[in-house]
């Protein structure tokens, strides 16, 4: 049994590990939504990123290629979504759901077919230790703090970096302003010479690529690169809700993702917390584990309820969210 402090640190680490795919999914979705597209295809986009990235990574034993593959896989889904909703003006919600069904189906199809024909690549021992180990050498050996801050795989830090870069891009740069204008009021943006369609295309495709990275994280780091039929496991849907929780700010999404990561980790880690703090948490052992499965979704619902009751003045929701822009109807 670990000391109480160590138990807390282990649980927090687990929250970060499980929160990272959420952070990537959320950051990608924020890019989509801020430019005006409510993309409900996160789950499917992550699934495609997972299968392309994992296969490329396992086949080449190269983590960089895995990330690249996932990014391209995600971009592919983004491109379909953008083509349908922007060029063909299809309904965004329907298209997003279609991407989810299509992406999950494609991932299942490729994975099962390869498994069936015994061609699903297995990892080399070096690649396995790369995806199951990780951490910054020397720093991670500092007691407590090392484990808490420096013991993660590279993608955890990359995800934070991406979230911060996206935040700076959206709030501080000129091109971010153009992109926000396309999401807030595409007609006005158009009237000052912003190419709304191009802005949306760009952000959807890059955002979907980032979601793809979240997918490959699920495949390689959460599932250790072993195929199972449900790699994404609903994390994509939580990411959609997290966008609201984070008020459309990818910097806030960092904390929000870890909170939801913590909720997801509770099913497996609550018993450890309860035995580390028996006087405060002993009641928790009576909670059925099914409740922990439902917890992230219950909190999601609460967030939706509260955010709809309390219309914040400084809500980050773009006004033009979910609406296609018809230039002719201006």
């Amino acid at each position: 049994m670990n000391s109480s402090i160590m138990t807390i640190i282990i649980v927090l680490c687990e929250a970060v590990r499980r929160g990272t795919p959420l952070l990537l999914g959320t950051t990608g979705e924020i890019l989509n939504e801020k430019s005006g597209s409510l993309n409900l295809g996160v789950e499917g986009t992550m699934a495609v990123g997972a299968i392309t990235g994992a296969l490329l990574g396992l086949a080449t034993s190269n983590l960089f290629l895995a990330l690249l593959g996932a990014f391209v896989g995600g971009m592919f889904c983004g491109l379909i979504y953008a083509f349908l909703t922007i060029t063909l003006k299809a309904n965004q919600n329907v298209t997003g759901l279609a991407i989810t069904i299509f992406g999950s189906g494609l991932c299942l199809f490729i994975g099962e077919t390869l498994k069936d024909t015994k061609k699903f690549p297995s990892y080399t021992s070096e690649f396995y230790s790369e995806i199951t180990g990780g951490g910054i050498p020397v720093l991670k050996d500092i007691p407590y703090i090392g484990q808490l801050l420096f013991s993660y795989n590279a993608l955890v830090y990359i995800a934070i970096l991406i979230a911060l870069v996206v935040w700076i891009y959206i709030t501080k740069t000129k091109s971010g302003l153009r992109m926000r204008a396309s999401g807030e009021n595409p007609a006005s943006a158009d009237s000052v010479g912003i190419n709304v369609d191009a802005e949306r295309y760009k952000n959807i495709v890059v955002g979907s690529g980032i979601m793809g990275l979240g997918g490959v994280y699920m495949a390689l780091f959460i599932n250790n690169g072993l195929w199972n039929t449900d790699w994404i496991n609903g994390y994509g849907w939580i990411a959609v809700a997290l966008v609201i929780f984070a008020n459309w700010s990818s910097a806030r999404a960092i904390g929000g993702s870890y909170v939801f990561g913590f909720l997801l980790a509770l099913k497996s880690r609550m018993p450890s917390l309860a035995s580390a703090f028996p006087s405060v948490l002993s009641w928790s052992t009576a909670i059925p584990t099914e409740l922990f499965d439902a917890l992230p979704f219950i909190v999601t619902m609460l967030v939706l309820i509260f955010s709809s009751i309390k219309k914040r003045k400084n809500s980050g929701a773009p006004t033009g969210l979910g609406l296609n822009y018809f230039r002719e109807e201006r």
Binding site: E14, N223, P288, T289, E290, D293
Partner: peptide, 25 residues
């Protein structure tokens, strides 16, 4: 013993094993 209360929960099947190893030695 850790109980999944599910016959299909891949994420936690691994997650529970992580907990048993890391927290219960």
């Amino acid at each position: 013993v850790m109980i999944l209360n599910s016959w299909f929960d891949p994420t936690n099947e691994k997650g529970f094993a992580d907990t048993l190893i890391e927290d219960y030695d």
